[in-house]
Every structure is written in C-alpha cells, then in structure tokens.
Design a protein around this nucleic acid. Structure first.
Lengths: 269, 269
DNA sequence: TCACATACGATCATAAACGTGCAAATTTGC
DNA sequence: GCAAATTTGCACGTTTATGATCGTATGTGA
C-alpha cells in the first residue's frame, strides 16, 4: 500500500474512533509497526492528527465539541454583553404563559437567562437551550425530533415532524448571520434548513441581531424582509439601516447595554 | 483500554455524578486501582477534574447539570453497581456502528458510561442519555420530538413522529418496573406510552432488569413476554424465574458485579 | 480515644510500546 | 535497463505504562 493511501486510512480510522492503535492500523494497512509509527509521526508534525502513546487520535476530541455549559465554544464569548441585552428585550416581549419558538443560535441562547422565572411554552431546536430551560426554569420545553448536530448544537430531521407542524406560537425568535435589503442571510446551510421549517409556525417573527449584522452578508438567503415583524438590535444601528427596516413597517427595538447607560449619563452630565 | 479512552470514560463518569469512586472507574475501564489513581492524578494536574479522597469529582459539581447531573434523583443511588453491571452486558451486545434504541430509565441510563468510546447510532427518548452521549462520546444521537417531561426525563409527543417511524434499529434496550408471567409491567402511564411507540422499531428487544424486578408487579402491562428476546439480570434470579423465561426461549444473561466476583473467589478458597 | 476499614503512595517485576540501525525491497531518474 | 534514492521491515536495546504487593495515612464508628 502506498504512503498516501496509508495516510488516508490512518486519518479516517482516527476520525471514527476515540484512539486508533498502532496494531489496528497495522492490520488495516497490512504493513509493519515501524511504518505506521513513521506515518503517525509524519502526520503529527503536519498537524493532521495528534500522536499519543499506543497510537493516534483526532485533533478535536468530542470532549471539546458541543459542551452544554458553553454551547458554542468560539462565538459564545464575543459580544456577550450586547447579546444578553438584546435577548432581554426579546424576553420582555413575552407574557407569562405565551408559547414561543426559539431558534438555535448564540444570541438567542442568551434568552434562557432571562427566562428563568417565566412559565412559558418554549419550542426550540437548540439542544443547549432545551437543556438549560429544563434544569433552570419551570418553562415547559418542547423539541423537534431528529439528529443532534454537535457543531451547531441543533436538532434537525430530514422529515417533516408532526410535533413541529402542530406547534403554533405567538412569537418566533431567531438570530441571523446578516441582515440587509435582500433579507436575512445565514452562512450554514444546516441552520437555514432548520429555521425554514419553523418560519410559518408563528404569528410574529422577531429577529435578534446586533448592529454589526447589518454590515455582514452571507451567501445564503434565509427569508425576505417582509416576513419580519420586529428587529431587536443595539444603538450601533445607522439611520439608513433603521430607515430600511421602518420603511417596510418593521418595528426596531434598541437594546441598551450597561455601557450605553453609562455613556448617556455622562453625556447628560 | 488505552490511556485516552480511559480519560474520556473518567471525565464522562465524573460529570454525571457528584463523585465517581475509584472502584466504579475500575469496573468501567476494567483496569487496576493503581492505573485509575494515576489517571485521576494526571487529569487533576491538567485541571480537568478535581481529585478527592475516594475518587474524583467534576470541577463544577452540582449546578451545571442540575437535573442532568443527577437525572433521577432518588432511584439513581440505589443499586448503582448492579445497574452498571447489567448495563455493561447490554453494551457488550452492541457492535461498533450498530443502531440501537435506548429507552429512558435509571438502569438504561447506566449504559452511557459504557458507550463513551463507541460509535453507534443511538436513538433515545431520554433527555439525559442524549445529553450525556452528546457531550461525552462520538455516538450519533437522535431524539424523537415532543414535550420533555421533567419527572421522567423523557421526550414524549402525542403525535406519531416521522423520525420515530423511520428509525429502525438492530436492538432496543428497555428497563421495566416488573417482569412476570404476564409480561413486562410499568407503573407510569407516560413511560408505557413512550415505550410502546418504539416497541416495533427494532429487530431484537433486550430487557434490563435486576432480579428484584421479578418479585415486583405494577398495575400496567407494557408488553407480553413473547415480544422479548433477551433479559439481562443479576445472579439473584431464582431458578423458577429463569425457567419461566427460558421456556419462552428468552435468553437470560447474568451480569456479574465486582462483589459477585469477590464472593466466588472466597467460596473457591 | 481506640480499633477498624478503607484509601493512598511507593516500589518493583512484567509487558507493551518506542526508536534506531541496517538490510531488503521498491520507486525514481537517467 | 541500471543505479541512486527512498521507503519498508526486522531486530535490537531502551523507555514507558501497568498491575500487584505492602506499608502508611486517613477517615469512620463504637
């Protein structure tokens, strides 16, 4: 077997197993231990796997991916304050007992912290949101069926779920990668698929998007602007952007962060 | 078992229980005390868990999972060793890549610890099982849609879900409140409802029931004995009970606990 | 406080994994 | 088709992990 072939075999074995031992790889490739060791060493310095005693493992062990505690490892940490302020306004729209849909995303995730003392009916395709609400609130939690995708942390099914079809909510809350004249955009096709399934299941569509989203475009259009009823953002929104929304009779809600409050206070003084 | 695999097992065990004892981990990994102690020490200096006398605990003990942490508050602590031994036999039946169904319950929950290094397709209506597998294993996780019931910790929907109907597994694992000549019995109507939806979705039905279940009867009959293919229990099962099962061509598997092993050793000596 | 049980750490023998040198085999260049 | 260069496999000595044993430390209950 050729070197490249072996490398492919090794990498695939490593992906599908917690740790691939030298012995296993010897059997798979029908070569010697020494060769496998050399291969592993080479792939290790190339940064394509991690070398461990006894064999090799993938670079990203599942322990790191999809932690419930920190649901979206990377995105989570940026702009948390902003996101939480936006999420607060979103929850403020809800009344006790409302049925609402919360789509998976880093901004919408922040809503859970404001929902702890509520008693709403929450439908969500986000596993971390469901998990948090379940353990830290008395809201009733409903999820769609399907496979749970670790990276996006959402539940998604290729089938039309009856649960989804039978759930009709007063409001649906959704994040987005970008927002512009053409509508909402999203980068991940999986998210698009998940979100579109829920679009028609609510009276009112509320978008949570910090102002930087007005200057970002992604390749995939999720829905047009006229589907949207409300947008919650921060004071970084520009006049023309706000105008664009209000021309379409979309209500714009500005969430004030703690920093904003300080600034207003100092500007008054 | 390899070092990395052990580490993952340990981390997984630690995070779903207030404290994982060295003994438990020895059973889970089938290694020696010394090795487990070394592993715990290593993980401790890496800051991945906290070392305590008798075993190890998670860095964030109670709050994180809340309900996830101790999925079934009361039942969880009784007979854990027994349940884990039974669960081990259950997982031993599975081969890499199998698709399996795991029904919610305290005994079946123990299966997750033995599944950390597997890569199966797992369909479960148990939220804690899904959550644990998601964060501590590479298994692909599929859930049905529906409301999450806090007390039983299962996902249940009044509708026939397409996800459920389209999933067909090699084996289905199920606990039970009682087992007798009339069949399996269960106390909670909700569990009956959940379990019956899945009964026809697998080739083989495996029941996890410690021997005390043979002397318990509940009011509600879940299914008849002739639906069952295998029963995993402990050595407390009586001859007539075993006969009852084998007369119906049900395979009986006896799970040995560590205590059992000790007793045999001493009785030999 | 004492006795007892359990948990712990150190030591050591064993087995497995590792790296290296060298010869055979294979590929590459001419 | 031949020779150089590279890769591969084997054997060797070295390093490392593991498990058993035993003495010590730490709780636990009377």
């Amino acid at each position: 077997m050729h070197e490249r072939e072996r490398h492919r075999v090794i990498l695939s074995a490593v992906q599908s197993r917690p740790v691939a031992t030298v012995q296993e790889l010897v059997e798979l490739t029908e070569t010697s231990e020494a060769t496998i060791r050399r291969d592993i060493a080479a792939l290790h310095v190339q940064g394509r796997l991690r070398r461990v005693r006894g064999g090799a493992e993938a670079l990203t062990p599942p322990t790191q991916g999809g932690l419930i505690g920190r649901p979206f490892s990377v995105n989570e940490t940026i702009n948390v304050g902003l996101k939480r302020a936006i999420a607060r306004e979103a929850v403020a729209l809800c009344e006790e007992g409302d049925s609402i849909i919360i789509n998976g995303g880093t901004t919408t995730y922040q809503m859970v912290f404001h929902l702890t003392n509520r008693r709403c009916q929450v439908f969500t395709n986000s596993f971390p949101i469901a998990s948090h609400l379940l353990t830290h609130s008395k809201n009733s939690v409903i999820v769609p069926g399907g496979t749970i995708y670790r990276e996006q942390n959402i539940i998604l099914s290729p089938f039309e779920s009856d649960v989804t079809r039978h759930f009709y909510a007063r409001r649906m809350f959704m994040g987005a990668q970008g927002i512009g004249p053409h509508g909402l955009t999203e980068a991940d096709p999986l998210l698009i698929q998940a979100e579109q399934k829920l679009l028609n299941q609510a009276e009112e569509l509320v978008i949570l998007a910090d102002s930087s989203k007005f200057r970002q475009r992604s390749s995939l259009i999720l829905c047009r602007l006229d589907r949207i009823h409300k947008v919650i953002t921060d004071r970084g929104i520009r006049d023309e952007e706000r105008q664009m929304l209000e021309d379409r009779e979309i209500q714009v809600i500005i969430a004030e962060t703690r920093d904003d409050a300080k600034q207003s206070a100092s500007s008054v003084a």
